[in-house]
Computed example of a mutant assay.
Amino acid sequence: MGQGQPRRHHQVPQFYLRGFADDSDRVKVVRFGEQPRTFVTSVKNVAVEANFYKVDWLDAVREDLAEKLIGKVEDAAVEPLRLLAQHGELTVQQRGDVATWVVLQYLRGRGKRVDSVGLQKLMLRADLALGGKQRLASRLGLDDSAEVDALWDSIVVRGELADPPTMRYSHLRTMFSSTISKVAAAYVQAHWQVVTFQRRRLFTSDQPVCLWRAPDDDPGVGLLTADAVSIPLNHTTGLVIFPQIPSGITGESAPTTQYHRWFLAHTWMSAEELLILHPDDELPDWLPAYREARLGTLGLPDIQQFIDIGEAWRTHQDRSQPAAEVSF
């Protein structure tokens, strides 16, 4: 990487986190997981990882292209997000800039990369499971049945696989696919509501874009199927996008207790590893301060299903083969 090129890649932009910071750019962080803790730090140290968006291209000039494209989206969104928080009027272009940032923000984090990696690993395991141990031995050039059995149990059954070398590229390809422009266009036409709380406070997380859908027989929820998408804009103001209500209008909602609880609950549930608060704020007593970290939302099928399908298919193939002729 050339001198002066970005190395510390933020999954949540610093300009956004400053809406929850004090005058010294400090925020309070609640970290979930096996070693939970709460601490105060600078926004530059939150949701950041070295070279997170870097891809090893043959052309070294392009290795930081993703970070630069993300930077352009962020730069375009700074002013309209500030206007939204102040209940200002947005142009159609500015609505588009906000919508693009919202969609990209939902797709860019560690959880979505975990989903991408998990899917790549599942596809490899499923392919091996459907082919069976004989095919696995053939692909690896193995004759030792004990070694094949051990690899089968390790790779196919338990999924003990290294992260694929394509994991970053696949994640970035998803981020910058037509999904962003398609969803952003729908969000521009959707109804928006801004709510500002006078005494109550909001917090955000390492996944600030929260999807909500009324309970029904389909547990899945996506950017276009959500009934509501909430985003805390700063520690007093939040935005709600209603993808199912086309109006192209931004309205204002009363800062009710119910609305406040709704924002906090969905922000807490959508967090992956971190909650981010103003240093002077505290989590309400009705929200647990600790829970397991939750990276990724993709519900992957049980690999045993693929093993069973492969065995059933091979049994069918064996039965359909003509019986060998017997000579006397």
Rank of each mutant, 00 (worst) to 15 (best):
residue 127 D to N: 06
residue 129 A to W: 02
residue 131 G to W: 01
residue 133 K to C: 13
residue 133 K to Q: 14
residue 134 Q to I: 04
residue 137 A to V: 05
residue 138 S to W: 05
residue 139 R to A: 05
residue 139 R to W: 00
residue 140 L to C: 04
residue 140 L to W: 00
residue 142 L to W: 07
residue 142 L to A: 13
residue 144 D to E: 06
residue 145 S to C: 01
residue 146 A to H: 02
residue 147 E to N: 06
residue 147 E to S: 03
residue 147 E to V: 06
residue 148 V to S: 02
residue 148 V to R: 01
residue 150 A to I: 05
residue 150 A to T: 10
residue 151 L to W: 03
residue 152 W to N: 10
residue 153 D to F: 02
residue 154 S to R: 14
residue 154 S to L: 10
residue 155 I to L: 05
residue 155 I to E: 07
residue 159 G to Y: 02
residue 159 G to H: 06
residue 159 G to E: 02
residue 159 G to V: 02
residue 160 E to K: 13
residue 164 P to R: 09
residue 165 P to H: 06
residue 166 T to W: 01
residue 167 M to V: 10
residue 169 Y to A: 14
residue 169 Y to K: 08
residue 175 M to F: 12
residue 176 F to W: 08
residue 176 F to I: 14
residue 178 S to C: 07
residue 179 T to H: 15
residue 181 S to R: 11
residue 181 S to L: 06
residue 182 K to V: 14
residue 182 K to Y: 14
residue 183 V to H: 02
residue 184 A to D: 11
residue 186 A to P: 03
residue 187 Y to Q: 04
residue 187 Y to F: 06
residue 189 Q to I: 04
residue 189 Q to E: 11
residue 190 A to K: 06
residue 190 A to T: 03
residue 190 A to W: 01
residue 190 A to G: 10
residue 192 W to S: 03
residue 193 Q to F: 02
residue 193 Q to H: 02
residue 194 V to F: 04
residue 196 T to G: 06
residue 197 F to Q: 07
residue 197 F to E: 09
residue 201 R to V: 12
residue 201 R to M: 09
residue 201 R to I: 03
residue 203 F to K: 13
residue 204 T to Y: 11
residue 204 T to A: 12
residue 204 T to N: 03
residue 205 S to D: 15
residue 205 S to R: 09
residue 206 D to V: 08
residue 206 D to H: 04
residue 206 D to M: 01
residue 206 D to S: 12
residue 207 Q to Y: 05
residue 208 P to W: 06
residue 211 L to M: 11
residue 211 L to F: 15
residue 211 L to I: 11
residue 211 L to E: 07
residue 212 W to Q: 12
residue 213 R to S: 15
residue 214 A to K: 12
